[in-house]
Design a protein around this nucleic acid. Structure first.
Length: 149
DNA sequence: GCCAACGTTGGC
DNA sequence: GCCAACGTTGGC
C-alpha cells in the first residue's frame, strides 16, 4: 500500500464532505497538472491519502481518505459547465484523470502548516519546500506514520 | 528549442 | 489584496 497527500480547498471538498457519509466515495476531480495527474494514475485501491486543506483559514492536514477506485478519465474535463473543462483534451485520449476516495478518519486535531514544518520527519516533503505547487504527491510510510501519530 | 509573457497557486 | 514562485503558452 502506498501513501499520498492531496491538497484541496475545504470550501469545495474537504474532510467534512468525506466524513458526512463515510460509505460513499467522492470523485477527486479537477487536477490539471501533469505531474500531479501522473501521481493520481499511480494510485491503487486501498492507498491512503492525507487530505490537506489549503487556501482557507485553517491550513493543514485534516484527515485521511482511502482510494476506492483507481484512475479513470476525469469527466469534468469534457463538461462545458465545469470550471475544470479542458476543450483541448482529446475525447479518445483523455488528458486528465480522477480517482474516487472515501473517508477513513479525521486527525484528532488539524495539523497546521506550522506544526508540519516543526516535524523533523517531514523536512523532505515536497509540500514544505519553497514555492511548491504540486497538488498531489507521494508520502513515505515514515512521513505518513509521523503525521498520523 | 528558446524564452518572454501570462495565468495560477497558495501562504500571508 | 499582495506577491513570489512556478507551469504553460505561443511566437520566433
Amino acid at each position: 500500500m502506498a501513501f499520498w497527500l492531496a491538497k484541496t480547498e475545504p470550501a469545495e471538498c474537504g474532510i467534512d464532505d468525506f466524513a458526512r457519509d463515510p460509505a460513499t466515495a467522492i470523485a477527486w476531480v479537477g487536477v490539471r497538472n501533469y505531474q500531479a495527474r501522473n501521481y493520481l494514475r499511480a494510485m491503487a485501491v486501498g492507498d491512503e491519502v492525507l487530505v490537506y486543506h489549503s487556501s482557507c483559514k485553517l491550513i493543514g492536514v485534516a484527515g485521511i481518505v482511502r482510494v476506492t477506485r483507481a484512475a479513470y478519465p476525469d469527466p469534468s474535463q469534457f463538461d462545458p459547465a465545469s470550471p475544470y473543462v479542458d476543450p483541448k483534451s482529446p475525447p479518445d485520449a483523455p488528458r486528465w484523470s480522477a480517482v474516487d476516495m472515501a473517508f477513513v478518519a479525521r486527525l484528532p486535531q488539524l495539523l497546521t502548516l506550522d506544526a508540519l514544518r516543526a516535524m523533523p520527519a517531514l523536512a523532505q516533503m515536497p509540500l514544505l519546500q519553497r514555492g511548491n505547487r504540486l497538488s498531489v504527491m507521494p508520502v513515505t510510510a515514515e512521513e505518513f506514520a509521523a503525521i498520523r501519530s
